[in-house]
């Protein structure tokens, strides 16, 4: 079975982003970029499926600028077999991304798609669900455990109040939550090997789908700053202030 893993290049999760003074967006100049953490978890899961003998090939797809090749190389160093880059400098919306991925899946015919539940830049949490809808496949989002038996996947999902387990027929789209696994660090020999693995470079136009934006960003601003920083000396002072000043007890 082939596993397809879409991955996104985003601002590194440790970077404190700054809003541009002209309110057009977030300043990405000279900022460290990395693979989206949820995508890393998805790559790890796909590689483990291959190591367990459930998957035969792991194909990684990224949609983004030429530098997204580095993100694909990171996945290849973790153990993915080959990559596809749909190269574009446009910041495509989730609907457009889902349409492009659906077209790729039409060509690749994977048995399962494993992907991050959301990208930490746009925080949309949408592409996996939209991809499943466009393909008319079942979806199992926010996965903390995936078990594949034959042509079914049993997926444990993190939901409000606890966990839910679903059984979905394959092919399906599964989106990874934080506790699905802990991604490995690529070893130096594997990083070297990854350089020789193939990456196919395509353009959005190759797939003949409508990627026009539906949303217009009018402005991007910083959130209001919270005034904090006051200290109390003791538990007694804390309770007194909560009761008398703040009135929350």
């Amino acid at each position: 079975m082939k596993v397809l893993v879409p991955v996104k290049r985003v601002v590194d999760y440790n970077v404190k982003v700054r809003v541009k003074s002209d309110q057009t967006g977030v300043d990405l100049a000279n900022v460290k970029m990395s693979m989206n953490p949820f995508c890393e978890i998805a790559v790890e899961e796909a590689v483990r499926l291959k190591e367990k003998g459930v998957a035969t090939e792991v194909v990684v797809v990224s949609i983004g600028p030429v530098q997204a090749q580095e993100t694909i190389r990171t996945a290849l160093a973790m153990g993915a077999d080959r990559g596809i880059l749909i190269q574009t400098d446009e910041d495509l919306e989730p609907l457009a991304v889902a349409k492009l991925l659906a077209a790729v899946i039409g060509e690749e015919a994977p048995g399962i798609v494993v992907m991050g539940k959301q990208a930490i830049d746009g925080d949309n949490n949408a592409v996996g669900q939209m991809l499943a809808a466009l393909l008319d496949w079942p979806q199992a989002t926010f996965a903390s455990k995936i078990e594949i038996t034959g042509d079914k996947a049993e997926v444990t999902r993190e939901v409000d109040g606890g966990l839910q387990t679903l059984s979905v027929d394959l092919p399906a789209v599964v989106t990874a939550d934080l506790r699905l696994n802990e991604p490995r660090y690529a070893s130096l020999p594997n990083i070297m090997k990854a350089k020789k693995k193939p990456i196919d470079v395509k353009a959005p136009g190759d797939y003949g789908v409508d990627t026009a934006p539906r949303l217009k960003v009018l402005k991007v601003v910083e959130p209001p700053k919270r005034q904090g920083g006051a200290k109390v000396e003791s538990a007694a002072e804390l309770v007194s202030k909560l009761k008398n000043e703040a009135g929350v007890l």
């Binding site: 919306e93 989730p94 609907l95 939209m130 809808a133 999902r157 934006p213 949303l215």
Partner: peptide
């Protein structure tokens, strides 16, 4: 935007060919 809502909202949007707006 509960875990259930976040699960199905984008699926509804894609079926209707609409860009979902999250949270």
């Amino acid at each position: 935007a509960t875990s259930a809502g976040k699960n199905y909202a984008p699926r509804i949007a894609a079926k209707l060919d609409v860009a979902p707006i999250s949270e």
